[in-house]
Amino acid sequence: SIKEIEKEEIIKVLKEVNFNKKLASEILGIPLRTLYKRLKEYGI
């Protein structure tokens, strides 16, 4: 599903940037606030 793909992509990017959420949100092209929402939604 799209949610699974998105979750995997978020985890992959977070690992690449050593869990720097600000940098991860910039790489993913989403606002930091949205990233936090996704992390909560996906239980990351």
Rank of each mutant, 00 (worst) to 15 (best):
E26Q: 14
S25L: 02
I10P: 00
I44E: 05
I27C: 02
I44P: 04
E9D: 10
S25A: 15
L14K: 00
L23T: 08
E9I: 14
E26V: 13
I5Q: 15
I30M: 12
S25E: 01
K37D: 15
K7F: 09
L14D: 00
L35C: 01
V17K: 03
K12P: 01
L35N: 00
G29S: 06
F19E: 03
Y42T: 04
V17C: 03
E41V: 05
E16N: 10
K3P: 11
Y42D: 04
P31Q: 06
L35K: 00
A24V: 05
R38Q: 12
K3I: 11
I44G: 05
L28A: 01
I10R: 00
K7M: 14
L39V: 05
L23D: 05
E6R: 09
K15D: 05
R33W: 12
I27F: 06
T34M: 11
K37L: 13
P31G: 08
R33K: 15
K37P: 02
I2K: 07
E8R: 13
E6D: 11
E8Q: 14
T34R: 06
E9W: 15
E4F: 09
K22L: 12
V17F: 05
T34P: 02
S25G: 06
K40L: 12
G29D: 06
K37E: 15
L23K: 12
K3E: 12
E4I: 09
K3C: 04
N18F: 09
S1H: 12
G43Y: 06
L28W: 01
I2F: 07
L23V: 09
R33Y: 12
V13N: 01
K21R: 10
I10L: 13
V17H: 07
G43P: 03
E16Y: 11
K40D: 09
L28S: 01
K15I: 13
K7T: 07
K37G: 06
N20T: 02
E16L: 15
E26Y: 10
F19Y: 15
K12W: 07
N20M: 04
S25P: 00
N18I: 03
K22H: 11
E9N: 15
E26N: 09
L14W: 05
G43T: 05
I10M: 11
K37W: 08
S25Q: 02
K15C: 04
G29L: 05
R38L: 15
E26W: 08
I5D: 12
K7I: 13
L32V: 07
R33F: 10
V13E: 01
K22A: 10
R38H: 14
E26C: 04
L32C: 02
K3W: 13
V17I: 05
K40E: 15
E9R: 15
E41M: 08
K7P: 06
E8G: 10
V13Q: 03
Y36L: 15
I30A: 01
K40I: 13
V13L: 09
P31S: 15
L32D: 01
I2R: 03
L35F: 08
I2E: 14
K21C: 04
E41Q: 09
K3Q: 13
Y42H: 08
N18C: 06
I44Y: 11
L23M: 12
K3Y: 09
I2L: 14
F19W: 15
G43N: 11
L28P: 00
K15S: 10
S1A: 14
L28H: 01
I44N: 05
G43I: 05
S1N: 14
L35H: 00
Y36E: 15
R38G: 03
R38N: 07
A24P: 00
L14C: 03
Y42P: 02
N20K: 04
E26I: 14
L23G: 03
E6K: 09
S1R: 01
P31F: 03
K22M: 10
K40Q: 13
L32W: 05
K37Q: 15
Y42S: 04
L39F: 04
I27K: 11
E26A: 13
V17T: 11
E16S: 14
I11R: 07
K15Y: 10
L23E: 08
N18Y: 08
I2N: 15
V17D: 00
K12N: 09
K12E: 06
E41C: 03
S1Q: 13
E41I: 07
V17P: 00
E6W: 07
E16P: 01
L35Q: 00
K40A: 11
V13H: 02
Y36G: 06
R38C: 04
F19I: 01
L39S: 02
S1G: 14
K15W: 10
I30H: 01
L23R: 13
I2Y: 05
F19H: 08
E6Y: 08
E4V: 11
I11D: 03
I44R: 05
K21L: 13
L35P: 00
I10W: 03
I10Y: 05
S1W: 07
E41H: 07
K15V: 11
E6M: 11
S25H: 03
E26L: 12
S1L: 09
L28R: 00
L14T: 02
Y36T: 11
P31A: 10
E9M: 15
F19L: 04
E26H: 11
E16D: 12
K15G: 08
I5S: 14
G43H: 09
I30F: 04
G29T: 03
I44C: 03
E8A: 15
I30L: 09
T34N: 07
L23F: 07
I5N: 14
E16T: 11
I27L: 12
N20L: 03
T34F: 06
L23C: 03
R38W: 15
F19M: 08
K37A: 13
L32I: 10
G29K: 09
E6H: 10
G29E: 06
K15L: 13
L32Q: 04
E16K: 12
K21E: 06
E9L: 15
L23I: 09
I2Q: 14
K22G: 06
P31R: 06
N20W: 04
K7H: 06
L28Y: 01
L23Q: 10
E41D: 09
E41F: 07
T34K: 09
I5Y: 13
K3A: 13
E9F: 14
E16H: 11
P31L: 04
I11C: 03
E26R: 10
G29P: 01
E26D: 11
I2A: 13
I27W: 06
I5A: 15
E41L: 07
K3M: 12
L28C: 02
N18R: 10
I11S: 05
Y36I: 15
I30Q: 01
R33E: 15
E9A: 15
E4Y: 08
E9H: 14
R33I: 11
K3D: 12
K12I: 06
E16I: 11
E8S: 12
R38D: 03
E4L: 10
I5E: 11
I44W: 10
R33V: 11
F19S: 05
V13M: 05
N20P: 01
N18P: 02
L39E: 02
E4D: 14
K22C: 05
E16M: 15
I10A: 03
R38F: 15
L14E: 00
I5L: 15
I5H: 14
G29I: 02
V13K: 03
K12G: 07
I2T: 14
K40M: 11
E6F: 08
V13A: 09
K40V: 12
Y42W: 14
I5V: 12
L23W: 07
K37C: 03
E6C: 06
E16G: 11
P31N: 09
G29R: 07
K15P: 01
R33Q: 14
S1I: 10
K3S: 13
G29F: 03
L28M: 07
I44Q: 05
I30V: 07
K12T: 08
I2M: 13
I11F: 09
K15H: 11
K7C: 04
I5G: 12
K15M: 12
R38V: 15
K22W: 10
F19V: 01
V17E: 02
L35A: 00
E6V: 08
K22I: 13
E26T: 11
N18D: 10
E4Q: 12
L14N: 00
I27S: 05
L28F: 03
I44A: 05
A24D: 00
G43M: 08
L35T: 00
N20G: 02
G29V: 03
G43W: 04
K15F: 12
T34H: 08
I30D: 00
K12H: 08
V13S: 03
L23A: 12
T34I: 13
L14Q: 00
K22Q: 13
V17M: 06
R38P: 01
L14I: 06
A24C: 04
K7S: 06
I11P: 01
K21V: 14
S1V: 12
L35M: 04
I10T: 10
E8K: 11
L28G: 00
I10V: 08
K7Y: 10
P31C: 04
K7N: 06
K3T: 12
I27V: 12
Y36H: 11
G43C: 05
G43R: 05
A24T: 06
Y42E: 06
N20A: 04
E41G: 05
R33S: 14
I11T: 07
E6A: 11
G29A: 07
R33H: 14
A24M: 03
K12V: 06
E8M: 14
E41P: 02
E41R: 06
E4K: 08
I11N: 04
T34Y: 08
T34C: 03
I30K: 01
K21I: 14
G43V: 05
K15N: 12
Y42G: 03
S25K: 02
K15T: 12
R33M: 11
E16F: 12
I5P: 12
